[in-house]
Every structure is written in C-alpha cells, then in structure tokens.
Amino acid sequence: MELDLGEIRKNIDAIDDQLLELFKQRMGLTRKVAEYKAAHNMVVFQSEREKAIIRSVRDRSPEELKSSAEFLFTNIMDISKCGQNNAITPAVSIPHGTQIKHTPDVAVQGIEGAYGHAAAQKLFPDGRMNFRASFAEVFEAVENGSADYGVIPVENSTAGEVSVNMELLEKHHVFVNRTVTVPCTHVLAAKHGVKEQDIRILFGHEQAIRQCSEYASSRPELTIIPYANNAMAAQMVAENRSSELGCICSRECAEMHGLDIVNPAIAADPNNATRFFCISKETEVYDGADTIAVSVSLPHISGSLYRMLTKFAVNELDLTKIQSKPLPLEFRTEEDEFMFYLEFSGNVGQPVVLRLLNNFQTEYSYFRFHGNFLAVN
C-alpha cells in the first residue's frame, strides 16, 4: 500500500526527533571530551581521528550517499569542535576602551586638499597633518612611530578595492581602529578661462580615472595620465602655463588652487564614495567598536572554506565581508598560496569573539588580526 504525503512526512518527523535526541547526546559527550582534552593539554583538532571517521562513514554508505554522508558528518564534527573550543579555549584579553590621542601627528598621502586629507580631518579635527609622497610611506611612518596615526583609502564604491593598500596592510605591523567614508564628487578642473573642449590632457589618480571612466570614454581625444594624487595633479595644473591641461579633483581642491570647475560632475556614480582606514602602531579599540578584520589562509582541500564559515554560523557572528587574495610572497608555500580577508561584526570584549580569534590562530598556518574598529559618520 502506497503511503500518502502526510504519512511520509510523519515518518520523517519521527526520524528527525530521534536525530535531535542523538545530537543532544553527542554534544553532551563532546563536552566531556573537551574537559578531558583540557585536563591533558590536548588540542581540539585531531586530524587523524577525523579522517578515520570520514573513511568509515564513506565505506558504510551506499555509493549514491557517500558524498552526502561525508558532508553531514563533517558538519557534525565542525559543530562539535566549535563547542569544544568555546569550552576550553582561553579568552585572552585584548585592550579595549582606548582613548584617542589629543592633537596627534597624522600621516596622509598627497597634499592639502586631497580626499585623504578630508578623511583625516573628519577623524582628527585637531590633528597635525603629516603629508607623505606615497601610501607605503604612510605605513612606514606609523610603524616606525614618526606618526601617531595614518589614514589610507581601502575601497571605493565604483572602482572597488585599493589593492596596494590592502597588500601593505598585510605586510606592516599596524592595526585598524576606525573607518570613515568620504563622498568623492569628482569635478573636471582647469586654469581660469580654459573651456572644457580645450582640454587635451587629463591628470588624476588611477582610482579617480577608473571612477570617471564613462566621461573619459566620451572624450576619446583626451590623453589621460595617471598622477600620484588628485590634489597634486590640481597643484601641477595650476602651476603650469598650458591651457590644454585638466585634472580630476574635488570642488574644494579646485577652489583651493584657484582652478575653474569646467564640469561639476564627471564621476560615473553620483554617490561615489571612498572608505578610509585609520591605522595605528598598537591595537587601539575604542568604545563602540563593532567590526573585526582578520586574514587567514585555508588548506587546499574540498570544503575548507565552508568549514571555516561554519565557525561563524555556530557562534552566531555576522560575516560582513569576505575576499580571496594571494598570500604575501614571504608566506606562500606549495600548500598555501591564497588567503581570505574577513570582516565580521563583534567586539574583542566578547568571549566568543576572543575564542574564535584564538581558534583561527591555532588552526590556520597564516593568521593576522587587523583590528577591531568603528565607523565614524
């Protein structure tokens, strides 16, 4: 006699009830395992035992269910490990509630009038601005202590990541403590009296050029030349006698250098904005910090990313950003060539966050804690 759908579902519900009871029993035993490992100074992750369990599960499963059974038991073991880690991993304290320094020295790439300068002024209205020729010099100034803080662009809403700075973040011993987002309403500026159609050479930072790509495409006669910084490009145009030069910059920057605004909006996105990191030599975690950034490498095996993401789900932590990147050259091996940059909601004052960070540090061959920060409006 063929069962109807209601009867089939009733049978499934009964099996699910049994599974839940068995799961509760298993997690109870997992806690006892955690206590034993803690008492005998054993690490949570026992790779050989896990491999043996998975081999046994596959051997005892029908062919069509081997992969599904492996996936199921891998998840169960990952959940168990999260429980064990939470039970026995010490929550090592990271200082938080730090006070921002008064009238600090702030390293910024470029010159007065740059978007980085605007971001630094938002973060440090009373800061002493220390302008540097390159982003690398900003990182070096913070790392060697010649500047208290550095302000660097890391992501634009149109052009995406500022990859050079994310690479420098991995290479230098600095930490992110705050972020600020600055609107980037690019204008086309030129010397007084120059008309838009007279401009033949356009200067701007490479990121700004990408953000104005639609305008550049509409002017095929333009020669476009990348410049170290938009404000520096504006200064150069202002000091040059040629009437064929134009630059991409902000309205405030154009006015600062006495340039005419010949086109008030050339960015592809009218809501174009850039996110900046504030970096410091030591970890500084201010009241209200709600985002954590880390980088980790994962082994080149099937499901390793999923297993890492399980840690966030089990601990009820919201992962807000994930991006794959090549590992810095000095950390690459045959097994590890890539890493993931992660941002997630949390504060180092939460034990669950500290245990997760400690778990990352012990389980993955490459781990960097980049900071616990808050966004400044």
Rank of each mutant, 00 (worst) to 15 (best):
Y227N: 10
R210A: 14
E170S: 10
V262R: 02
Q235T: 01
N144R: 12
N229I: 02
V182Q: 13
V138L: 03
G246Q: 05
G193W: 01
M232H: 08
T185N: 15
E140A: 14
H192Y: 04
D148L: 02
R178Q: 15
M236V: 07
E155C: 08
I224D: 07
S134Q: 06
P220N: 08
S250E: 03
M256K: 13
I209A: 04
F139W: 06
C212I: 08
A141V: 02
M232K: 12
C184L: 14
D198W: 03
S242V: 03
E244L: 11
H192W: 01
E143V: 01
L222E: 09
N240A: 15
R251T: 12
R200Y: 01
P226Y: 10
A216L: 15
H173K: 14
N240G: 00
R219A: 09
L169C: 04
S217M: 13
A254Y: 03
V237M: 06
P220K: 10
S250G: 15
P153K: 06
H186A: 12
V174A: 02
E255A: 12
E170M: 07
A136W: 00
N144D: 15
N230I: 05
C184G: 06
C184M: 14
G150D: 08
S213G: 03
M166I: 13
I152M: 07
A233Y: 03
I261G: 04
F135N: 12
N165I: 05
L222N: 05
P226S: 08
L169A: 07
A190Y: 00
S242H: 05
A234E: 05
L188E: 04
V180I: 14
I224H: 04
S134N: 01
V164E: 14
L168E: 04
E161C: 04
L188M: 09
G204I: 06
H186V: 10
A234R: 07
E244H: 10
C184S: 13
I224Y: 08
S218L: 08
V174P: 06
S242Q: 05
H172M: 07
S213F: 03
Y149L: 10
Y227E: 11
T158S: 14
V182H: 06
N144L: 04
C249T: 13
D260I: 01
T223F: 02
S250V: 01
V262A: 03
K171H: 11
Q197W: 02
I248N: 05
S213D: 11
I248M: 13
L168R: 12
E155M: 14
M166W: 10
V162P: 01
N263S: 15
F203L: 15
Y149D: 06
A189L: 02
N229M: 04
H173E: 15
G145V: 09
R200G: 10
G160V: 08
